[in-house]
Write a protein that binds this DNA or RNA. Structure first.
Lengths: 213, 213
DNA sequence: GTCTATATCGGGATAGAC
DNA sequence: GTCTATCCCGATATAGAC
């Protein structure tokens, strides 16, 4: 029926738009290229989505929606903090690896938009897990502060610890070309590097949370 | 004299171009805005630099040239590896903090240019310290491998360790809007966070390289 | 809904006077 | 070397036929 066809076309457009926007960013993307990628013409883009801006918004929101729910869910599991952080690292890294260009895209657009996209960003995070008590960083921070009260992660401060973990997971994808150039890695070497990454970050957590005996 | 005036104008243009390119990226930047920022008109931009592309190249190269020499120099000092890494972290972080938007700019442009800028990037790094035995990551990696042969950083692999250190230094600047949004920091809170950052990364190094006694 | 044709505008680049 | 005026293309967006 017509309805199915419509929805399907909208999907095709969104897939194409996602591909182009994520690769080139809002400013670098061309509506023509999106149309070509979707196998239709420019007029259709404006028929389904009013403007480039609106199409971009949709892509931006979906890019976040793809990655965050599983991370949120992982953080809500009851566990002691050390294991929860390891779980967070594993799930977060997996999600990023499945969508490797999303982080740089999001960070670049957040930067240029000067906080107008930041609201969209936070809103999207809240919708990731509807009835969660807060954003995943807040949940982890609260538990880390409780652990800190028990003297657990030594002199490591909760906010720095969390930022470091995110950094270690995300940075390889954000900085891939630079890392490869600086450290002389080719594609294959970099993939092997990624294969080892989670266990190396877990090592970091082991040293921050030494097993008491 | 005329010569001074020329050089001065070229400088003014470069400063303006730097400001605009770093904020908006190559694709988002407008020659008109650069001209306004420099207090001249568009024609002058093309007179001094042939094209937007050439102007961009110059800005890109200078952005790297501003940051890297001190890092390179720091890494060449003779020290035991642990102290050298701490020095690296301190100097690298200081450099990035002095030019906080450079990393995201460089990473975004490296990504979109698909390795054509990577050559410029590597070339610029080599020129940072003319007679150095190699790029700073290679120097650190070599020493880390030697340390690894002595069993020093435990199970931490040299390449992962180095990437983690760079990540911990750079990520706060690359992800600033995201971090502020997710963790509920305002400008002042984030600056305090940055003030603590180096010492928190050093803590990480202390746990990776425990003092033998 | 989908296409072709076109309006409209903005941006990079150049010509030419001074 | 610096300006004004202009060229010309490309990009978003819309009109209108089918």
């Amino acid at each position: 029926m017509a309805n199915t066809r419509d929805a399907d076309t909208a999907r095709r457009i969104l897939e194409a738009a996602r591909k182009v926007f994520l690769e080139k960013g809002m400013a670098g993307a061309r509506m023509q290229e999106i149309a070509d990628e979707a196998g239709i013409n420019k007029a259709m883009l404006h028929y389904y989505f009013r403007s480039k801006e609106q199409l971009f918004r949709q892509v931006f929101e979906e890019a976040l929606a793809d990655m965050m729910p599983k991370v949120h869910a992982a953080v809500l599991q009851p566990m002691r903090i050390k294991d929860k952080l390891k779980t967070f690292v594993r799930v977060y890294f997996e999600q990023v690896r499945a969508h490797p260009v999303v982080p740089l895209f999001v960070l670049h657009e957040l930067h240029r938009s000067g906080a107008s996209l930041a609201e969209v960003f936070v809103e999207q995070m809240k919708q990731a897990v509807p009835r969660a008590p807060g954003l995943f960083p807040q949940i982890l921070l609260d538990e880390l502060r409780a652990a800190a009260a028990r003297g657990e992660p030594g002199a490591h401060k909760p906010d720095h610890l969390l930022v470091s973990l995110m950094a270690m997971c995300v940075f390889p994808f954000v900085a891939r070309p630079m890392i490869c150039a600086l450290m002389g890695m080719d594609e294959a070497a970099f993939e092997r590097f990624l294969d080892e990454r989670v266990s190396q970050v877990e090592l970091f957590l082991d040293s921050v949370f030494p097993e008491e005996r």
